[in-house]
Simulated assay, not measured.
Amino acid sequence: MRVLLVEDEEDLRYVIAAGLRDAGYAVDAVPDWPDADVMLDLVPYSCVVLDRMVPSGDTLYPLQERRRRGWSTPVLCLTALNEVPDRVDGFRSGADDYLAKPFAMVELVLRVGSLVRRAPQRLPVHLSHADVELDEARREVRRAGVLLYLTPKEYAVLRQFLLHRDEVLTRTTLIERCWDEMADPVSNVVDAVVAGLRRKLGPPPLIRTVRGHGFRFVDGAERS
């Protein structure tokens, strides 16, 4: 899942982006609303983390305008403005959640996860297929009851396989859903992550390579 972060403080932008990436999200990070406005027209984000005060002004105004046009992507306002009237203005303008600075990174990650699950696509908290179980709330993956230790990208790719287990997922699709704009779509980054995921899932193999197309999750009875 892909998150857009709008934060003008460079150090904080780096810390938040790193924390979300460690949690398995693909993150595009920009410093101001005009940059975000362009990205929102190009990419279908699962969530937006929005600093309220940026160089171009209060982001509640453009947020409100987008909501009026029917834009429904979940938005978490991240701001030092935390008085009751500020929070009321945020929710009235279309924010789905409001987190005051300073904040704990673990709480921000949990709130983003909650917003993503409440989005129109209604992503489930628990995903399973064959003997693989993914618990989104705990961010744990088990196979046959055994806890697996996945990297954030392995976790993100596995989540896509479980969400779309009846589909062939191309490398381009996985890049778009699990990586940010810094990813190199012509590199073997997807193949490397899938190979690592295959190894950690163990036998019988669950990820089948569909030659010339991409990958598909199977039930273990099919040969990969």
Rank of each mutant, 00 (worst) to 15 (best):
M1N: 06
R2Y: 10
L5D: 02
E10G: 05
V15A: 15
R21I: 01
V27G: 02
D28K: 04
D28R: 00
A29S: 13
V30A: 11
W33E: 04
D35A: 13
D37M: 01
V38D: 14
V38L: 14
L42E: 15
Y45E: 02
Y45G: 03
S46M: 01
M53Q: 10
M53E: 08
V54I: 13
S56M: 05
G57C: 06
D58N: 13
Q64I: 00
Q64E: 11
R67T: 00
R68S: 07
R68Y: 00
G70Y: 02
P74G: 03
V75P: 03
L76G: 01
V88C: 07
F91P: 00
A95V: 02
D96P: 05
D97F: 06
Y98G: 00
A100K: 06
F103D: 04
V106F: 03
L108R: 01
R111N: 11
V112L: 10
R117K: 12
A119Q: 08
R122L: 14
L123Q: 14
H126S: 11
L127P: 11
H129D: 15
D135V: 01
A137F: 11
R138L: 10
R139P: 00
V141M: 07
V146L: 10
L148A: 07
L150P: 04
L150V: 02
A156N: 05
Q160E: 09
R165I: 00
E167G: 00
L169V: 00
T170F: 04
L174H: 05
C178V: 06
W179E: 06
V189K: 14
V193Y: 05
A195H: 12
L201P: 08
P205D: 06
L206H: 11
I207E: 10
I207Q: 09
R211H: 12
G214P: 10
G220R: 08
E222W: 07
